[in-house]
Design a binder for these strands. Structure first.
Lengths: 254, 254
DNA sequence: CGGTGGGTTGAACGGCGTCAAACCTAGTGG
DNA sequence: CCACTAGGTTTGACGCCGTTCAACCCACCG
């Protein structure tokens, strides 16, 4: 398998710790279609090249595999290139709970900065690829490139805001509202990435959705059918259609 | 009232927008007893002086007053010097929900970085004082002082981790566990600040606690008495005593 | 074609929210 | 110093939403 390396000529693979070679691909923000969504958004040519030097590699994660786990040493943050991840936290009693889903252009691993150790686990929900961004280098580059520093801070702040929103949702909304809010959130993020806002495939199981929303899978299932009966969505297994987005949005405010 | 300025000789008050003078006090991280808890932790003398030049003022907030509100332009972050704040987010239907309590040494306002506008409201739960930290200056100083940049990132990451923990709590724990976790969290933060870990005063109402934990004030009240019956805590109005901290910790893992 | 894992559906239970009333505390004004 | 009031807290009764447990179904796959 290791001969695959050779097809990426001229790229230095820094950390090959015996992993299969296809997990170490070269990266390039400057030519990445997601870069406006990601950390490098709004940067000029010269700065982009500087980032390219830092973000030197990509990594493939197969469906079901973990990108990092609780307790792993923190060295890098990761930008999702394609695919989908879930992050899950560990409860005091050992149970795991999903705290978020990350899609293309979103960052993973920021939780590790606080004490140089990851406090959650990131698992690929489908075959995925991430850019590896060594955080120490990222910080020093941020010192040289104010716009990049700004972007990092914005992304971190946005993550906090999202968590807060979810908090509010879990704190006071009931099942149907939670699920509706979840679907709308997915819809928006799909739209941002150029996919259809009103029709998409759920990559996660009912169990994972339930864990994320603080509900049992049974309740998720029941609530899906309830929302369908009310004409707000159409569900067929993993396939979701939202015939009237404003109507669903309006439903949240109840 | 404005003659109070004179007692702080030699300190330039940069933004006096006609507010009462006692809201604009000089700040100095280098002489602040909290600085190891706060952003300036671990920095040397020279760097501290640099911060002192940025963090030029303090602001008093009377009990019940807002430090900032949803929609306010974002210019600064704030470090609590003494007192206590709550942050609350706005639901889609207009209701407000408490998303956090901030005590001495903790930061407020990081939510505003993401799009230069505050998305939550910070209200003082008792007469309080904050240091005003202009964020643009903070960022540029961070570029010059790596240790400060690191601290900022650590604090932001820690905030994300805390939010995640709360998320997990709201998602899967039930009332008694939530309340116990809340009390333990307060206990730890008190201890960090040199106060008693097993005995303290709740500065917030049952309503605010309930809002934070996703419970009604009635349930909070009932759960307090339940925990008391079980011998895990002693409650008298706002006064809380935890006779056996390990026992309470153990209770969470159920 | 049977097996397996995820999904749906049903029935019964229980925790928490809702509504309502009593109580307690602090602050106010007589 | 004592009503009086207004908020906050406690307690009780009741009902609903979501959990739990179980059976069944469906899609996918060997």
């Amino acid at each position: 398998m290791s001969h695959i390396d050779t097809q990426f000529h001229g790229v230095r693979i820094t950390e090959s710790q015996g992993r299969p070679a296809q997990q170490h691909l070269p990266a390039a923000c400057s030519s990445c279609s997601l870069h406006e969504l990601c950390l490098s958004g709004g940067l000029d040519e010269i700065d982009l090249e500087a980032i390219d030097r830092i973000v030197a590699q990509r990594r493939r994660i197969a469906k079901g595999e973990a990108l990092f786990s609780v307790g792993d040493a923190f060295r890098s943050i990761y930008a999702v290139r394609f695919g989908l991840f879930k992050t899950e936290g560990l409860m005091t009693d050992g149970r795991e709970q999903v705290t978020g889903f990350q899609m293309a252009g979103e960052l993973l691993g920021l939780d590790g900065i606080s004490d140089d150790r990851h406090v959650c686990k990131a698992v690929a929900l489908e075959d995925s690829e991430v850019c590896v961004i060594p955080f120490a280098e990222m910080e020093s580059l941020g010192r040289a490139v104010p716009a990049l520093q700004r972007n990092l801070h914005r992304v971190m702040s946005r993550e906090m805001v999202q968590d807060r929103n979810l908090l509010v949702l879990l704190g006071s909304a009931q099942a149907a509202e939670r699920l509706a809010a979840f679907l709308l959130n997915l819809s928006e993020r799909h739209a941002q990435r150029g996919y259809a806002a009103s029709e998409f495939i759920l990559r996660m199981t009912r169990d994972e959705i339930g864990s994320y929303l603080g509900l049992t899978p049974e309740t998720v299932s029941r609530t899906f059918t309830k929302l369908q009966k009310d004409g707000l969505i159409e569900v067929a297994q993993k396939h979701i259609r939202i015939p009237d987005l404003p109507a669903l949005r309006n439903f949240i405010g109840c």
